[in-house]
Design a protein around this nucleic acid. Structure first.
Lengths: 194, 194
DNA sequence: ACAAACTAACTATGGATATAGTTAGATGGC
DNA sequence: GCCATCTAACTATATCCATAGTTAGTTTGT
């Protein structure tokens, strides 16, 4: 159900087509929420049907058109209501931890290889997150910049601070994962090389 | 697809009925993997059909019977193959971070209330995780104890160390979340009380 | 002139997951 | 004796989500 609100959140910055949204999702927004096209397009249609969005047909080239989605007042009200509502806690469901608990079923070479892969993944995540954080702080992040232009300085300050706060959380999480992976290497070394 | 392997992992400890598994899932194993009955029972049937498990009818009371599931050699081989295979990295999809990035759409009282709820949730998680970790270290954890009895001391040592390692990761993650939540309180105070 | 790459908006299919039940026997307390 | 609660094994329904396409128009480089 959060996909719907991730979409409204994005569209509060600026109106976008489904394609724009899909690109935003695979770029920066994917850091907090990932979704493939096959979820985005149907959800946009449902949201328009439910009156949370309206679409405007915009010409594209000579013959083509594209649909630009705008958040309606009802959509914004719905988003605010969600923002005020309590969070349902996340279920733990992470294959990395499940696997780690049973690493004794794999050989040490394979364990090390998997740790290396996880390490590469989280290091890449971390540098992406830090890069994006920097564009939030200096307000060059495109979607954020579009939204800030419609706000007072005080409001803009709040929007920036909370986004930076969210990214700081993601960065801390990535660092925690990396520290855990480092401990994993140390454990394998201890168990097999001594 | 990991549900299947979470089930085999559990059943390597000791044979269980669907009901036992369901209970294990809502108790300790839920820390690494959560699943409702409606996933567990059909998956057990599919796994038996695929030859990964066999079931034995066991009497229960005077008239009743229950089905006790055992891991087959094929099941164990499948599990080992999964344990050796690379992990597909997890997509970020956490409503808490999505919300945090847009907290400026909610009023500070609601933000504080949501932070308190998150804090309560993670504190409870943390104490559960630490409790379970202790039962792993002293080997009183029931499912672990059952599995250890079939292993050599060296193998048992490995099984325990990896499980403790997994829990240490979960504990570190919980602490990171709590630190992030504390930063959230500080941020709200700074933005609204000055 | 033509191909490659990009923009746009989907769809089809299957598997994963959540919510909320049902049916039936067993056990313990009063 | 009976009620509440527990054990056992499901089912029904709907939504979420991933993978992997399709169709069509646009832009850019050579």
């Amino acid at each position: 159900m959060s996909l719907r609100y991730a979409l409204i959140a994005l569209l509060t910055g600026r109106p976008m087509t489904g394609y724009d949204i899909s690109k935003s999702f695979s770029r920066s927004v994917a850091h907090v929420w990932h979704a493939p096209d096959s979820q985005i397009y149907p959800e946009l249609n449902r949201m328009e049907r439910d009156g949370l969005l309206t679409s405007v047909e915009v010409p594209w080239g000579k013959k083509g058109t594209k649909k630009e989605y705008h958040v309606t007042d009802a959509g914004l009200a719905d988003f605010r209501a969600w923002m005020e509502s309590p969070l349902t806690p996340q279920r733990q469901r992470d294959p990395a931890y499940l696997k780690a608990a049973y690493f004794d079923f794999a050989d040490p070479a394979s364990v090390r290889e998997q740790l290396r892969q996880q390490q590469a993944y989280w290091e890449e995540q971390l540098s992406m997150l830090e890069g994006t954080r920097a564009t939030l702080v200096d307000r060059t992040h495109p979607t954020l910049a579009a939204r800030l232009s419609k706000l007072t300085e005080r409001e803009a300050e709040f929007a920036v601070r909370y986004k930076v706060y969210a990214y700081d959380g993601l960065i801390a999480r990535a660092r925690t994962e990396l520290a855990w992976i480092a401990d994993g290497f140390a454990l394998v070394d201890e168990l097999y090389d001594s």
